[in-house]
Computed example of a mutant assay.
Amino acid sequence: MSFVSPLLSRPGAVAAAGADSGVAAHYGDPMREQRTLAEGRAAVDLSFRGVVTVAGPDRLTWLTTLSSQQVSGLVPGESAELLLLSVQGRIEYDARIVDDGERAWLLVEAAEAEGLAVWLDSMRFMLRVEVANVSEAWGVLGATRRLDTLAALPGAGPVWQDPWPHVARGGYSYAVVPEDRHPGLERPWFEHLVPADRLEEAAELLDADGIGLAGSMAADALRIAAWRPRAGFETDDKAIPHELDLLRTAVHLAKGCYKGQETVARVHNLGHPPRRLVMLQLDGSAHTLPATGSPVMLGTDDGAAKQVGRITSAALHYEMGPVALAVVKRNTDPSATLVVKGEAEGEEYAAAQETIVAPDAGQVVQRPAGLLRHP
């Protein structure tokens, strides 16, 4: 049965749909909620998250051998991000991981939890690990700062801190801006694991501390402004980490062999990712937003237009107005104004690009220094 958060019974709550089903999209005032969330005065219910635990003394070395990330040295309370890839290097699972000293907690999109747990269980062999899908037992509350009230709640789980946009050990940045000017620095992010049956108690404790609730729309708008990819939105069945700048947080380029490593290394050292992530500043005169999957078009010299990508996420930001993330062909002119086709007849949005992944990303071997950035 699908999860429905008890916080949906709060006054003004409007239910979210799609991947965020089960929590509130907003509580009556999305722009105010977004501002208070950005300022650290609100928490957002993310209890649609799937939660998978891995216990046992071999858990971290085992996850290291399976994934793109080096997590064997995680200390209790330390957070990271890892990818599980196909043989072709395509992203199959994108997991947030935090270890509590006894078990590793993997936070994923709701649709991924069961498949991830089943796949991990099939890979145990003779190792001392135990996998469990505990999604129904746990809720998740997100915030732009660590909320000690939630961390101190009896029975609370660990807190995952997003490593984005810092370049992790062994990672590499494909962004055109240096780390100290990355917009993701304006959005530190923490996800607190709370027992599902204590979510209402947690909200009441936050109320007492002057911390309100924001909806999932607010969290998504801040994520887009931070250039942060989300599994199932920016990823599809062809996505590789390089296209989304995920080498910065989720890939250790010097670790041992894992499924998909050959593609990761080949594209990074010798080739270019076929697509790249961009942020779009949308024309707001239509007072609507394009749907996920809307085609992104580029005009041609003969007056025609060709599709160069698709919208992956869109939101109304409380300061910047309508913004979106899109995945476009690598060779799309970064200076060109693009057009997003809406669902209705004649509905179009002019879109100015903000480059995230550099058009020349990849091919690091023997390239001039300084074009791509590393720690």
Rank of each mutant, 00 (worst) to 15 (best):
L63W: 08
L282K: 06
L85V: 07
Q161K: 12
P183W: 09
A254E: 13
S67K: 09
T235P: 07
Q366E: 13
G28Y: 12
A218V: 05
G232M: 08
L247F: 06
L84M: 14
P290F: 10
G56L: 10
A239P: 09
R230V: 15
A254I: 01
R275C: 04
R266W: 06
R187Q: 05
L8T: 15
L199W: 06
A16L: 10
N133V: 03
T288G: 03
L37K: 03
I224D: 00
Q353Y: 04
I356V: 15
L84T: 03
K238Y: 05
L199Q: 10
T263N: 07
L85H: 05
G299Y: 04
L222D: 05
P334N: 13
D197K: 12
G299A: 15
A219Y: 00
V177R: 12
S47C: 04
S9C: 04
L222T: 04
P76G: 02
G232N: 03
M279I: 03
D148F: 01
P178T: 04
M320Y: 14
V129S: 02
H252V: 04
S68P: 01
G77F: 04
A291G: 12
G101R: 10
D121Q: 13
E114M: 09
L213K: 00
N133D: 15
S216Y: 04
G142P: 04
